[in-house]
Design a protein around this nucleic acid. Sequence first.
DNA 1: GCGATAAGGGAAAACCTTTTCCCAACTCAG
DNA 2: CTGAGTTGGGAAAAGGTTTTCCCTTATCGC
Lengths: 351, 351
Amino acid sequence: MSADAEPAPVSAKPPVTLREVAAAAGVSVATASKALNGQGRMTAETRERIRAVAQRLGFRPNHLAQSLLRKRSFTVGLLTNDTYGRFSLPLMAGVSDALVDNGVSVFLCNVEDDTRLGQLHVEAMLDKRVDGIIATGKRIDRHLPIDLSNLRIPVVYAFTQPDPGAVGLVSDDAGGARLAVEHFLRLGRRRIAHVTGPAGFAVVHARAEAYREVLAAHGLPVGEPLLGAWSEAWGHDAVARLFGSGRGREGWPDAVFCGNDQIARGVIDALRERGIRVPDDVGVIGFDNWEIVAEATRPPLTSVDMNLASLGREAGLALLSLVGGQPAAPGIRKLPCRLVVRQSCGRPPGG
Amino acid sequence: MSADAEPAPVSAKPPVTLREVAAAAGVSVATASKALNGQGRMTAETRERIRAVAQRLGFRPNHLAQSLLRKRSFTVGLLTNDTYGRFSLPLMAGVSDALVDNGVSVFLCNVEDDTRLGQLHVEAMLDKRVDGIIATGKRIDRHLPIDLSNLRIPVVYAFTQPDPGAVGLVSDDAGGARLAVEHFLRLGRRRIAHVTGPAGFAVVHARAEAYREVLAAHGLPVGEPLLGAWSEAWGHDAVARLFGSGRGREGWPDAVFCGNDQIARGVIDALRERGIRVPDDVGVIGFDNWEIVAEATRPPLTSVDMNLASLGREAGLALLSLVGGQPAAPGIRKLPCRLVVRQSCGRPPGG
DNA sequence: GCGATAAGGGAAAACCTTTTCCCAACTCAG
DNA sequence: CTGAGTTGGGAAAAGGTTTTCCCTTATCGC
């Protein structure tokens, strides 16, 4: 009989119930419940005694029973189709953070791009009586492959295209682009090129339009944005076009605003291979602030951050207030980006 | 009064209950329950009628009520501290896949490295009566900052250090390293270097040891692995050391096995800058198979894949069988890696 | 036509907690 | 000492489902 090191039997003995607490304290379950919840009337002594017993027994109320009664599960579903992407993780973390602070747990639903799988998840959520659903994607301009429009529970869309009449939160891509271009202008750059992704993406146009507007507003010549792919390789190719032998050296840009960090990486590498110095000859700014890329470029990349964690947090809070019965203004709300300045864009002339 | 386009009032009218189905079908709730679950005895006609009514009313059983009764919530918690990492996402997707197919939903718990937050999440899970917990991390050789050892519900550890006596699943890093080195040997490479991460990581030693063993087993000279950081920059530096002027050209390695894909990227870039051709002069293999990096290197990078999605799937299934009462052998189970061959290692001499 | 058996279906308890309503006992003023 | 008011605490219903046990009715053999 080894008296030490009680080996904590794996036996799943059932959790302590309120009934047991009440019995141990010599009161009814009703009184026990009221004591623990600060409800009802009783002597302070009784209340304390019940609390002490509950504490000693390690009582924890069964949320399933509570939910059944309250018709509120304090649980929401988080749908995403971005399995491998870098967008969903910070977003999900933001959602989770905002909600756990409010006692709400989050069901993770990875739906890929599979309608059947999505249906499966949504039905599971509904059966589990989630209080609401957050739909998340990898593109602002695409729907998830699931219909969430007649769900009788609130739905918030974050970083994905919302249903008409629903509430959606996305990044302000135009604003982010303005941030980048205006920063270049403050640094004294004047011939600013824009190398970005494929025409099929709405953000490509939103950012390109903002780029044009800022330049036009400053009376500067507006180059035609170069549309391509979201890849390093395209960044290389774009440099070949912008800095090719066809143009004179004085026709070269002194800044390149890139549609994402991978393009920027390609641009920077290609410039170095051509002996063009970054940031001395040409400044570069990326988009997404994907740290692991932005910090590995030489020099480290200034980039527009979409604040996805905040976006997630806001989405969580928006859903919470919807669940609480507050009517939220439907429509798309754009959340500001921020510029994370590293060394690829250069310092201000005076500094 | 527009008669078309009924605007689907947002009113949250409560879901249909079994009682309503029973009433509509003119039977008792008991009979209705049995009809829908294929239990009890009744005429096929009755059963069908009840099913039809349930269908028509859109009845879906309330899982909270079911869980309360069955003492099983068909829900598990997924703890992770890898908020921004590339490891957790495929792992989580694998877990989620394996479980949703079994009707089990997954609570996402992002605990950062914060003990308080972890405690909060674990208690929330316990209160919600999860059937089990999967603990996930970003390092095999580190604990999560939470104690899960006396939890009365099963716990499975995936890609993080398990508690003693618990069941844990990790990648077989030594096996992965062998895969890489043996592939080089098959390709006829003989002077194989190893550039890897910091000494503080257990995987660094596991992989280095396997690297040594394979070379020794083939009677080849074993170079000392170069330990550094998990970064591109270290890859650059390592090339400077391996291919520096100190050694004669014939002392140069003809292959470099890298501890991760970022190091490999740095190595490849540095080799190109030195005019050394990959894979003709030197083959390179990475680790992690981080596609977005592996496919952007020039040439695309051969890399060891840890099969994290499978790992997640296995972890989910292991937890499920534990929850089902099957006693699982405690201890660490290592799951094999696989080599994803691209173009950075060269083709076999004959091919 | 009678007893036995099977078939079809229902009543009620159970899961755990919260909340409303109620009851008994006590206090206090008159 | 009586009536009103207050205090402390309990009984019971509610929430939705499953399951056990029981009851009624029909069927069948003789």
